[in-house]
Design a protein around this nucleic acid. Structure first.
Length: 359
DNA sequence: TAGGCCATCTGGTCCT
DNA sequence: AGGACCAGATGGCCTA
């Protein structure tokens, strides 16, 4: 049924082949049209309308009855509807589309387009900022928009649960929470970031009353996995052991006080037994790939196996802090989401969470 | 090559 | 009237 509907829709006229100011889609849509779609178009746009538009409009124009604009328009709006008993449309009379009006209409449309572009760019900038504060940020393998939102939602939920329960969940349940509803590729990505095979939490029915058992008893959870890492190459594979005993970037580590630490974009729940707090640019490629403040020295290539787990909250970049948003290769046009914000204007619960992981 | 993702254009609607 | 927001349509790019 739906397929049929879609198929039928695909047969509809391609309204986008014509600029907005020359098109007049079906009669149903015309009820609130602005004056540029009035019933007495002039100039070349009229020809376009005739070419594309509904038959009644074309007939009306061809008949050369444009001057009786209002009456004609009302009739036209009825389209093929044969009943002429419909009450006339009220409201301001529609005016002719003089060339000047057409020009104005074009300008309005262009301005609206520009605004819409800006709006979408801002939205994308916000999404980029969101990507940086959810687990598994990778500049080279960006999460899609929808996956970013899903992961963010899961992440918020997971953190809320931590705060609510006041105890540290196991890694697998954390990952399971993070990956709820995510696509398989994103799940693999998250798993890779956590050095955890997606199989461990996707295929094992380890849920028990809302809690998850450790899928792998060899986990050593001394911290909490907050990944800010590039998924290791072959991330889908499960590496031998999982020791989440890494330092907690949220505080305490002397490295964070060092000038090299440029701040992070991510929340503090970061654990990884292997990562380094100091920036360790592993290769020029990696440098290129992460050309802004908080990033991973992790590698994108297969050669990264030895170092791909290393987190680097280092200062690459010259864009200290400000790079949150538009650092390096990024061309975000919105004001950057400053690291300072993340460091000093932490979300509610940050300190509790921080203290929690340091107890 | 199909499908996913994305940017852009566009018209409609609501609000100020 | 104009701007913000939204959703549909479309075409380009990328990847499996």
């Amino acid at each position: 049924m739906l397929t049929r509907l879609f198929n039928e829709q695909s047969l509809l006229p391609d309204v986008h082949k014509f600029p907005a100011w020359v098109e007049d889609s079906g009669s149903e849509d015309s009820k609130t049209r602005e004056e540029e779609q009035d019933g007495c178009p002039l100039g070349e746009e009229d020809l376009e309308e005739d070419v594309k538009g509904d038959g009644s409009r074309a007939q009306s124009d061809v008949a050369g009855e444009e001057e009786e604009e209002d009456d004609e328009m009302d009739d036209d709006e009825c389209g093929d509807d044969a009943d002429g008993d419909r009450p006339r449309k009220r409201g301001p009379k529609k005016r002719k589309m003089t060339p000047a009006r057409v020009e104005r209409s074009k300008m309005r449309r262009m301005k609206a387009n520009a605004r819409e572009r800006t709006r979408m760019h801002d939205l994308n900038s916000a999404l980029d900022n969101l990507r940086k504060v959810v687990p598994c940020y990778s500049k080279t393998q960006k999460l899609s928009k929808i996956e970013t939102l899903r992961l963010a939602k899961n992440y918020i939920w997971a953190l809320s649960e931590i705060l609510r329960n006041g105890k540290r969940p196991d890694v697998v349940s954390y990952v399971q929470t993070l990956c709820k509803g995510l696509s398989q590729p994103t799940t693999n990505l998250v798993a890779g970031c956590l050095h955890l095979s997606s199989r461990n939490f996707l295929t094992e029915p380890c849920q028990d009353g809302g809690r998850f058992h450790m899928a792998n008893p060899s986990f050593s959870v001394h911290g909490y996995p907050y990944p800010r890492c590039q998924p290791p190459s072959g991330a889908h594979g499960l590496q031998g052991h999982y020791s989440y005993e890494g330092p907690y970037p949220g505080g305490g580590s002397p490295d964070y006080a060092s000038p090299d630490y440029e701040g992070r974009h991510s929340p503090p729940v970061c654990v990884n037994g292997n990562f380094s707090l100091r920036q360790q640019p592993a290769s020029p490629d990696a440098e290129r790939g992460y050309g802004y403040s908080a990033h991973y020295a992790g590698l994108s290539g297969a050669r990264s196996s030895a170092v791909h787990h290393h987190l680097a909250y280092g200062a690459t970049g010259a864009r200290g802090g400000g790079g949150g948003g538009g650092g390096g290769a990024h061309s975000e046009n919105a004001p950057p989401f400053h690291d300072a914000q993340l460091r000093h204007e932490r979300a509610p619960g940050y300190d509790e969470l921080n203290a929690f992981f340091h107890n």
